[in-house]
Design a protein around this nucleic acid. Structure first.
Lengths: 130, 130
DNA sequence: GTAAGCACTTAACAAAAGGTAAGTACTATA
DNA sequence: TATAGTACTTACCTTTTGTTAAGTGCTTAC
């Protein structure tokens, strides 16, 4: 967690637009409702299509197929075909997907912190309201 | 031989679904095309509406107004009204928005790394193609 | 007085994203 | 023979997201 840009108080406009550009690039690659969830679901090991759909929950076959195609094209996911009696297709993360480690860790940490914050403020509001 | 269900290295299924939940929470709060960009634009200091629109670039007034309303409701942004000869309205980040520091740093770092990777692979492809 | 800036809102519309349900083609099981 | 599972694709439709262009009410500058 090295601080690339220490700009808590005042960030120069150039640093700001550099950040804007960089985060824009990141969002272009891994933004959207499903991409990060698919990557997280694959972190525990390679999975087949229906397995993946079940473990993510709430994603349709159409969306999953489209997202997987995109993730493969962009080098995050590797698709392997096992020609056997039932042809089995397995999806796994590539090494490149590993570079997202910090992003995923930061998001997960912030997300659970945020959930706790929301829960607390809901309790507080309840006490005030009733 | 096929290690289809071995959790490669570090993640158990329970940790996986915890991550899925946490990242889902994070995406719910700060997902979408604009929220993080607005927050980054405000990191360099408080800004007024049109200023913000110009510094982000590509966002319409309607979208900006809607996103700002949402960010204010969720405690990331503070809206201050200065009643003067021209009424001036200023948007600034709250302290809570500061908790996103690690997320923003990780995303910016990964985004610029990714941009370099893409640029390199494009150069390589150009050499092969032409 | 006309234009322009501020901070938006509204209407009308277009594009993107995503869902449902059905279909495809194959195999395995009862 | 019928049913179910695997890995999708396709057509159709709805929802979400966003854009443009115009308008509002107020103020300052030319």
């Amino acid at each position: 967690m090295a601080k690339i840009n220490s700009c808590s108080a005042d960030l120069s406009p150039e640093q700001c637009s550099a950040n804007l550009l960089a985060v824009g690039d990141a969002l272009y690659a891994i933004g959207g409702k499903w991409k990060l969830r698919i990557i997280i679901a694959l972190k525990s090991g390679s999975k087949r299509f229906n397995e993946l759909q079940r473990s993510i929950g709430g994603i349709s076959a159409k969306a999953l197929a489209a997202e997987l195609k995109d993730l493969e094209l962009n080098g995050f996911v590797h698709r392997r075909v096992f020609t056997g009696s039932p042809v089995v297709i397995s999806y796994a993360l590539t090494e490149y997907a590993g570079t997202l480690g910090n992003v995923l860790d930061a998001l997960a940490a912030w997300g659970s912190m945020h959930r706790e914050t929301i829960k607390k403020s809901m309790r507080k509001n309840k006490r005030v309201a009733l």
